[in-house]
Nucleic acid binder design. Structure first.
Length: 221
DNA sequence: GTCCAGGGTTCGT
DNA sequence: ACGAACCATGGA
């Protein structure tokens, strides 16, 4: 089965997801750190706290003592760890001249720069690459791995980079598209996977009737 | 009320 | 290479 076929089934079933929720690239990047191991509803509360404190910007967050930042982002969980990660991220972001400067970086350098900040791992970096900088990188998460493993399209225990390269090259060989079109596809594809895995398949189990059969049975194994 | 799923990154061992 | 630590929230 083609990877693009899976996308078509998801899109037909759920439609456009309009990710990422966030008004500015910086907000998206903060959200990417906050959402590590946590439900998005909790991230929204943390972001609302930052907005209410008029502090959803790199300068305020960087200037703020870690304890204060931790207090604001508390609803997102792991608040001490994340306050430190956000601090690290903001100091890198400011040192490199902010979004307007970073957006000019080539894909590879930007990704490596992101990865070099302590607290930003591959998935978080790729969320930022795709959703804040609109670069054509396919985001791999636990749902992606699980669903495609069950469909027999990947083995499942490949490393992150391996899986990402696999998705990108498979999709590129299946359909010919511009860079902008790939950004749009990867954006929507990841959003659809998350939506399908989290709740859609409980309320609207499309995978029972189509080629996705079996992709989201009970979480055991 | 209690239990526990959920899930990325870093840092020990 | 692998396990532990980090934590709030909400649903069973």
């Amino acid at each position: 089965m083609r990877f693009f076929t899976v996308y078509q089934h998801l899109f037909d079933a759920y439609g456009c997801q309009h990710w990422w929720p966030g008004d500015t690239p910086f907000e998206i990047m903060v959200g990417a750190v906050l959402t590590q191991n946590t439900a998005w509803t909790n991230v929204e509360k943390a972001i609302a706290n930052l907005v209410a404190a008029d502090s959803l910007n790199a300068e305020s967050m960087h200037r703020m003592p870690a304890e204060r930042l931790a207090e604001l982002i508390r609803p997102a969980g792991y608040f001490n760890v994340k306050a430190k990660r956000l601090h690290n991220f903001c100091s890198w972001y400011l040192a490199e001249g902010g979004f307007d400067s970073l957006k000019k970086w080539p894909d590879l350098e930007l990704r490596q720069g992101l990865l070099a900040v302590n607290g930003v791992g591959p998935e978080t970096a790729d969320d930022m690459m795709l959703y804040a900088f609109e670069r054509p990188v396919f985001v791999i998460d636990a749902y992606t791995r699980r669903i495609f493993q069950r469909l027999g399209l990947v083995v499942g225990d490949e490393g992150y980079e391996h899986l990402r390269a696999e998705f990108e090259s498979r999709l590129r060989s299946e359909i010919d598209q511009s860079e902008a079109a790939r950004v749009g596809l990867y954006n929507e594809y990841h959003a659809l996977i998350v939506h399908h895995a989290k709740e859609a398949c409980r309320t609207k189990p499309i995978c029972a009737q189509c080629c996705l059969r079996g992709c989201c049975q009970s979480t055991l194994n």
